[in-house]
Amino acid sequence: DHDVVPEDKFQETLHLKEKEGCPQAFHALLSWLLTQDSTAILDFWRVLFKDYNLERYGRLQPILDSFPKDVDLSQPRKGRKPPAVPKALVPPPRLPTKRKASEEARAAAPAALTPRGTASPGSQLKAKPPKKPESSAEQQRLPLGNGIQTMSASVQRAVAMSSGDVPGARGAVEGILIQQVFESGGSKKCIQVGGEFYTPSKFEDSGSGKNKARSSSGPKPLVRAKGAQGAAPGGGEARLGQQGSVPAPLALPSDPQLHQKNEDECAVCRDGGELICCDGCPRAFHLACLSPPLREIPSGTWRCSSCLQATVQEVQPRAEEPRPQEPPVETPLPPGLRSAGEEVRGPPGEPLAGMDTTLVYKHLPAPPSAAPLPGLDSSALHPLLCVGPEGQQNLAPGARCGVCGDGTDVLRCTHCAAAFHWRCHFPAGTSRPGTGLRCRSCSGDVTPAPVEGVLAPSPARLAPGPAKDDTASHEPALHRDDLESLLSEHTFDGILQWAIQSMARPAAPFPS
């Protein structure tokens, strides 16, 4: 592969990997390779389809078979030569091979799209000592099968071997295949498990690692696999990028399955594409389908809103127990993405979901129960707010008499603000006073009005108090039968009158 990737590009890729991570280095090298001529790309395919690569990765054979028959990708048995050289000459001794072996032994695996480039050397060096003999053996194999790289107009793939297949390693990572398949204008990513390549439709969760975000852009890794992070704060999961590491605690105790298979379609829109997988259930989501939507993949363990709600429900009964003089119970939860139609709101002032922060849900004790107040519409209280300059209440639009249902020339009671006709409430011909108009209920007259088809109010509507207090003497005590009587009149003013009279009014101040 030294004929494909020059030394300066190799060093530039290593520097970019240390600065921005393996995914960015892979993407940059792939983009550079696509700008080369067809001879360089053909050399790339020839390096990929060597015999030892085909033996190690069985899924490469179907890719090789898909090439046109007129494309010669065979390799000479006596060494490598550029395709432009007409004579089959043995190339001179390859010093770059020693360079590659020494550099890969030092860096474990470079971040390139060629056999030198995919593992994360920093994480491997940190986690190597417990498994040094086995990992050293794996390093000797890295130059042979560490990076199976493929690129063409139909298929483009980048393979990364790992030393996680050490025997006896619980939940060992089998390997990473960062794979971009450009077929019919689409893009897919796969993962390699035990020599087999699994596409998103049959993606397997190998051991402790999972394909957290099938994305090839942005600074985030394709698999949430930063070796420096180790395990999740809650004892979460091992990262795919942690090559040759000792077994780590796999999943939280509440995880239903340690080796679950995540779905390959969004649980909201039932469509495929780039998904984020939940650590607590097999569901996966688009970032845009979450509520609120996320802009980037959160670091650490992530769970959907259903799993978060289940966790909150487990903690909430203990938080609601009476604990005198104790601060509110704080339950730190990872930043969760909410699927459509589901929402768990945190306290005000918290950062938005999706940031690399930890939301704190506070379970406050329930407030003391209070008697429910009568629910009145805002339009129902409008007549009470229509007060004239002299303190006389004006008529609201649409006000109707509670007896006849007519809204023409209605009066407004100064005591309960109900609309009424003087002739309907006082049919006996009582003279109307000039000021202080009161309806039949507030004036103490319980004589029913002779209106055909309208039920008369119940005599129990009024329960006047002592006459010594004029204001308190007109406080009506309405009961269920009074409400039914008012409802039978089918008037809004009657219902409003009952609601206003049912509310307690402050006692009249004593004259000074």
Rank of each mutant, 00 (worst) to 15 (best):
R338S: 06
V454K: 07
G336L: 15
A504H: 07
C266A: 05
R400Y: 03
F510A: 03
V312W: 15
L437G: 06
E326L: 10
Q260I: 05
A370E: 12
R440G: 08
E320W: 12
C289Y: 08
Q313C: 08
A418L: 07
Q316V: 12
C424T: 01
L381K: 05
C277D: 10
K468W: 06
S339L: 09
P253C: 04
L359H: 05
S369K: 08
C424Q: 05
A418Y: 05
P348F: 12
R283V: 08
A366L: 00
S369F: 05
G436C: 15
S473H: 11
E330D: 09
T331P: 06
L364W: 10
T447K: 09
P256R: 12
P383Q: 15
L478P: 06
V246I: 06
S431T: 07
F420H: 02
T430Y: 04
A399F: 11
R505A: 02
L483N: 03
C386I: 06
P253H: 06
A477P: 14
A380F: 09
P292K: 15
P464G: 14
G354K: 03
A370D: 05
D470Q: 08
L496N: 00
D271K: 11
I500M: 12
L294E: 06
H382I: 05
D255H: 08
L333A: 06
R283F: 04
G280C: 15
P347F: 03
C277V: 09
R480G: 01
P256M: 14
E484Y: 05
C307M: 15
H425R: 05
G341I: 12
S379I: 08
R412I: 10
A399L: 07
D470F: 06
G434L: 15
L337I: 13
R345V: 08
C424Y: 02
S458A: 10
A504M: 04
G300V: 11
A417L: 13
R440H: 00
A467W: 14
N394L: 15
S473W: 04
A508E: 08
L290I: 10
H259R: 08
E321N: 07
P506N: 07
L486W: 08
C266I: 05
E314V: 08
D445A: 07
C281A: 10
E475R: 02
N262Q: 10
D481A: 03
L496I: 12
T414V: 12
S502K: 01
P476A: 06
T491R: 03
A463Q: 10
E296K: 01
Q501M: 05
C401A: 02
T471M: 09
G444M: 10
G453Y: 06
P368I: 07
P322K: 13
A251L: 10
G391A: 13
E342T: 07
G398T: 13
L290P: 14
V410W: 03
G244V: 11
G346R: 06
V451Q: 15
G444K: 11
A449L: 14
